[in-house]
Design a protein around this nucleic acid. Structure first.
Lengths: 102, 102
DNA sequence: TAGCGGTACTATGTGAGACAAGGTAGCGTC
DNA sequence: GACGCTACCTTGTCTCACATAGTACCGCTA
């Protein structure tokens, strides 16, 4: 039902700033999604790329191997908007259920 | 990440009132979870029963076959509490991410 | 200069949850 | 007796999340 939520979060992070897998993982961890690992993020990123929601480009790094930077394109922004709509709807339904008196 | 949310909702509904699969499905639908089907609910119910979170009992129905009524037991109430804790944590993290300025 | 730790990406396999699809059956009514 | 509603269960499939493991670049230091 709420599957694809992590994917939405990744879209949001990319929307805020053009970035890359390793940094996205660190960002998610510091945002409180503690047990999200690189493997998880990279599979999401590849999926997003395959679905044509992000544009990727290689950039040299100051330290370590080159980075694969991702930017949201128009389709990605549309997807993000529908994701938030879905999220708002479902999360408020769940909160209603939680708060409702028997 | 948020998987098991539907399961939590089902636990909540049973916690509010001892009830059965068919009615739970109708309840979820009218609560706004429109595309939840009976098959989905029954698999959740069987899982809950197997995990010892609910107690089941057959009851005759006024119309139609007998109902399998479910009630939350102590373990189920504990599970529901930890589910809400998890939900509160994750949903507020996601809302923070949503509301945050780039 | 070899090794270590941090950065950075990729591939592959697994498990569980959500869902579709289909089947069985009791009961009331037209 | 066919239809429609109630009520349950089974089986298969897809995808997401996650684990695991491997490759490789770079800077530091012992």
């Amino acid at each position: 039902m709420l599957k694809g939520t992590l994917e939405g979060c990744v879209l949001r992070i990319i929307d805020a700033e053009e970035t890359y897998g390793y940094a996205i993982t660190r960002r998610l961890n510091e945002l409180g999604f503690a047990d999200v690992t690189e493997g998880t993020v990279y599979t999401i990123l590849l999926r997003l790329e395959k679905r044509g929601l992000v544009d990727a480009s290689k950039r040299p790094s100051e330290q370590g191997p080159p980075r694969k930077c991702y930017a949201l394109n128009a389709a990605g922004r549309r997807e993000l908007a529908t994701f938030w709509a879905r999220w708002d709807y479902l999360s408020s339904r769940i909160n209603e259920l939680k708060e409702s008196r028997p």
